[in-house]
Design a binder for these strands. Structure first.
Lengths: 112, 112
DNA sequence: CAAACTGTTTGACATCCATCAAACACTCTC
DNA sequence: GAGAGTGTTTGATGGATGTCAAACAGTTTG
């Protein structure tokens, strides 16, 4: 059923847009797997955590969950719980507001 | 004396401008001390490693040397040996060429 | 309700990392 | 050349990290 009123799913805990710390963002992205995830989410994907589109088939599901948490707690992504799935999304507006130009520069750098 | 012909000092080993890897740069900057160093060097300083202007008096000199190496091997800084001093400098042009806009965005984000 | 599904949590483990301390290498100065 | 100065290298150590595996929790379906 639909639960207790949230028709779009509940949002997992995450830092407020003004609380995102640069050093945590950089630390989170200083890992190949999470940098790969940034690329995926930036392409507009909003897929669940076990999607094949993530390209993480070589990692255990608990490891993927671990990376998801790091990115969410750093303020890079937001996670919405819908049913038994988690939909992860890039916090593009929040990141742009806090660190103008950074995300765009990072995404452009990823293409190199 | 002047040594063997290098009047500006020898350059320590560093990756070529085309070999700088984004994930290594982000990993290097995902640390409070090194992010602090980035801010110092970006201000145009080109001081030796034990300068009080680095604001690292609380760290052992070998620890500072360790951070210097991480940043140099990531391609963020270049180190020139002059006499018994090491002059460290931000590789602004190389970083801009490889990752356009990234350094500016990072420095602007540091002001927040 | 039972079974399947999705993802988290906990534990274990090997590795990496930031830090300090001591020894070393190199350079400058006396 | 002896001593001082600057920074690196090596070793040690405690803490963080990435990974897997197993157990668990919530949800959907039969």
């Amino acid at each position: 059923m639909s639960g207790d009123g949230d028709d779009a799913g509940a949002l997992l805990d995450q830092p407020g847009s003004g609380e995102i710390e640069l050093v945590k963002v950089l630390h989170a992205l200083g890992d190949p797997t999470r940098l790969h995830l940034l690329r995926i989410y930036a392409s507009g994907e909003q897929c669940d955590c076990s999607s094949e589109r993530l390209g993480l088939g070589h990692l255990h599901k608990s490891t993927v969950s671990h990376h998801m948490r790091i990115m969410r707690e750093a303020g890079i992504t937001s996670t919405r719980v819908v049913g038994r799935n988690r939909y992860v999304q890039l916090r593009r507006a929040d990141l742009d507001a806090r660190f103008p130009g950074l995300l765009d520069a990072l995404l452009k750098s990823l293409e190199v």
